[in-house]
Amino acid sequence: MALAIPKEAYSGKIYEVQLGTGPKAVTIGGANALPFLGFEGVFPHKPAIALEVTDTSPDDWPETVRKAIGDAGKSPAQWAKLCQSAGADIVALRLIGTHPDQQNKSPEEAAKVAAEVASAVDIPLIVLGSGHAEKDSQVLQAVAAAVRGKNCAIGKAMEENYKTVAAAAMANDHKLIAMSQLDVNLAKQLNILLTQMGFAKERIIMDPMSSALGYGLEYTYSVMERIRQAALLQNDPMMQTPIVCDIGMNVWKVKETMAPEAEVSEWGSLEDRAVAWEVITASGMLAAGADMLIMRHPGAAAKTKELISELM
């Protein structure tokens, strides 16, 4: 019996979204087949890797990742430079210091940091709020204006604040990261709401909400697989936005990235284990369809880039 390669008949395609300007601009998306199936589709762009920088020094991050960042962590601009020289495609600035439970920094302070980071590097920028829906509305408005012209991705727009966040991105010509909570229908719903207010769907990057290896990864994995199938096989235009997975913040809070070997000898070397935790989480998200990853450890990011090259 001869094998007839069973190919899928795809009708949809992921939108291509460009971030940044000039020679270091990055485009994601464009796939017209399920992840990495080169025998039946084209993948014009590699999944991109963003390294995360925060507006406060990362004192509460686990030692393994803090060590890899070193003194650069004290200055967001220095830190961003480190990310660029470590090979990141993109810098993701998270304004965690603006959270009311953290340092409650003002939108103006946040805007200043964002502008500093933007001018420190020539790779594209993602700017994220602290995740506090209300505060993010104000912070991201100020920030979006401060980095105008840089073609950034601003986020995250959530059900509670999408109007103001999307308006800020729209007014300043940025792309938008829209996050929903691990649910195919909610993801679609948010994209619909955004388009209804006039935000072009081709400028949205969808965050289905990430989780770490061993801590709910399978939920994100399956939600993403379903989103990708709806986009490509059912040609659902509301599901055809590229996907970003914000994994660093989930990975670097689990015990596997912190517990010293002396405490859990059966888990082996902390350094390798912690980096592997981020790499394997990344691998899971890539296999499920991620177009962009936000990571924390430069070494893990480099390893993930290697995996991406092996996959393309």
């Binding site: 059966e266 888990w267 082996g268 070397s269 902390l270 592997a276 790499v279 296999a287 290697e306």
Partner: peptide
């Protein structure tokens, strides 16, 4: 480890590794 993870997700029923460091196997 990274390559093996792809095999696990994408349908391999047996994955042969050259070494089984504890950290690698935990992941």
């Amino acid at each position: 480890a990274a390559r093996a993870s792809i095999a696990v997700m994408k349908y391999a029923s047996i994955v042969v590794l050259s070494n089984i460091e504890k950290w690698k196997m935990l992941a």
